[in-house]
Design a protein around this nucleic acid. Structure first.
Length: 263
DNA sequence: GACGATGTTGGCAC
DNA sequence: GGTGCCAACATCGT
């Protein structure tokens, strides 16, 4: 589920829990917890949620008087407020008002409780919506890797995933196998604008619900109806009418228009 | 029932 | 610093 627009939507849907106290935390599945269950529960008990923020694809709860609760949704993770428990409800937070649960059928996501943000979070690159144009152009021009792989690399820029990498490259007219250091400046500037456009439109649509993504209130997004290439293999390109192609780049399904996107 | 694909990251070999 | 491959896991479509 979770790329920048979906995570942003979840965070916005959680805004109202700021100020609430955590009464208890139950970790049912060790796999999705980074750390020890008893220690993590003990740490959380009695702390207050100060604010909920997005950091790339991570959801960060800043706690009072100190500490963090970090959630990464992986492929199928969900944070749900006051929702019935399922066999995939792996973490249950009892709050002063309401119950927040972490549900994740594939268990690729992670929950972590810590005093300071860990390296795996702080080492990430600038946020895809925060980076400025000049910095972005410089970063791309230094890279010899293929653009699709570069956009997926969270240490380059954080927040993009498979859907939005494909959609932004299409809008910028860049082939997924194009190499950053060989792109013209104007082309990189167009990509920068495409990233802002696509992400902001997707946030306005409350994300893409490809299979079962929902926000913390159980609401689906609608940006999947506006995808131009992602999972449109064989369908006509909205610009030129030629069929959209699918290939594998960096082990990820990659959708593009061979006519509109040049190397 | 088998097989392949699915939005993620991390580790390993080279 | 790259790339390629595999791993984790459950579900869904063919």
């Amino acid at each position: 589920m979770p790329e920048l627009p979906e995570v942003e939507t979840v965070v916005r849907s959680l805004k109202s829990i700021a100020g609430r106290k955590i009464l208890n935390a139950e970790f049912r599945k060790p796999r999705v917890l980074q750390g020890d269950a008893d220690q993590s529960a003990e740490f959380l008990r009695g702390r207050k949620i100060r604010v909920v923020e997005r950091y790339g694809k991570f959801i960060v709860f800043r706690l009072a008087p100190s500490g963090f609760l970090i959630v990464h949704l992986g492929m199928t993770g969900k944070l749900l407020m006051d929702s019935p428990l399922t066999k995939h409800s792996h973490v249950i937070f009892t709050l002063a008002r309401g119950v927040l649960q972490y549900e994740d059928s594939r268990q690729f996501g992670r929950v972590e409780v810590c005093e300071e943000l860990p390296k795996r979070v702080t080492k990430l690159g600038p946020d895809a919506l925060d980076i400025d144009l000049a910095t972005f152009v410089d970063l791309v021009r230094k890279r010899k890797t293929r653009m699709k792989a570069l956009l997926l690399n969270q240490e380059f820029v954080r927040g993009l995933g498979n859907i939005y990498a494909d959609e932004t490259l299409f809008r910028a007219g860049i082939h997924p196998l194009a190499v950053g250091s060989r792109l013209k400046r104007a082309r990189i500037e167009r990509l920068y604008e495409a990233i802002r456009e696509v992400l902001n439109e997707a946030i306005a649509s409350k994300g893409s619900s490809i299979s079962d993504y929902v926000d913390s209130d159980g609401n689906r997004g609608s940006f999947q109806d506006h995808h131009r290439v992602y999972q449109r293999t064989g369908k006509p390109c909205v610009v030129c009418g030629k069929p959209i192609k699918r290939t594998l780049v960096a082990q990820r399904g990659t959708h593009f228009c061979a006519t509109c996107q040049k190397r």
